[in-house]
Amino acid sequence: MSIILGLDPGSLITGYGIISYDINSINYITSGLIKINNKNILFRTNLICNYLDKIINKFKPDYCAIEKVFISNKNISSGLKLSQVKGAILFLITKYNIPVFEYSTCTIKNAIVGTGKATKKQIQYMIKFLLKISFDIKEDSSDALATAITYCHYN
Rank of each mutant, 00 (worst) to 15 (best):
G87T: 09
L33A: 09
G32V: 12
S83H: 07
K128M: 11
K120G: 06
I13F: 09
K138G: 05
N50Y: 04
K128R: 13
T107G: 02
A148N: 06
G79S: 12
M1D: 12
N97V: 00
I48V: 10
F129P: 00
G17F: 01
M1A: 13
F43N: 13
Y103M: 04
D53K: 14
N46T: 06
K54A: 12
F101R: 01
K117T: 10
Y51M: 08
L130D: 04
N37M: 11
K60Q: 15
L33R: 11
L90V: 08
K54I: 12
A148R: 04
I13L: 10
A144Y: 03
A146E: 03
T115G: 06
T119Y: 02
N73L: 09
L33H: 06
N50R: 11
T147E: 00
Y125G: 00
I4Q: 00
G17N: 07
P61N: 12
Y28F: 15
G79R: 13
Y28T: 01
I71M: 14
N24T: 12
N50V: 03
T105W: 00
S83K: 07
G32R: 02
C64W: 01
N27H: 13
M1N: 08
I76V: 15
T45S: 15
S72D: 07
F43I: 15
G79C: 12
P9I: 06
I26A: 06
Y96G: 06
N57T: 13
S72M: 05
N155V: 08
I41H: 02
T150I: 05
L82W: 05
L33E: 15
I112M: 02
G15C: 10
K68G: 04
T105R: 08
D22F: 01
L90A: 05
D140Y: 06
V113A: 03
I127N: 02
L90F: 04
F70C: 11
I123Q: 00
I3F: 08
A111R: 05
T14E: 00
N73I: 11
I55M: 11
Q122V: 07
L7E: 08
D22L: 05
L90G: 01
S142D: 03
G10T: 10
Y51D: 14
K39C: 03
L52Q: 05
Y96S: 06
N38D: 10
I13M: 08
I108S: 08
I76C: 04
R44T: 07
H153A: 12
S31H: 13
M1G: 12
L92P: 03
S2R: 05
N73S: 15
G87H: 06
S11M: 07
M126W: 05
E139H: 09
A146V: 04
T45R: 04
K60M: 14
S72C: 04
T94D: 13
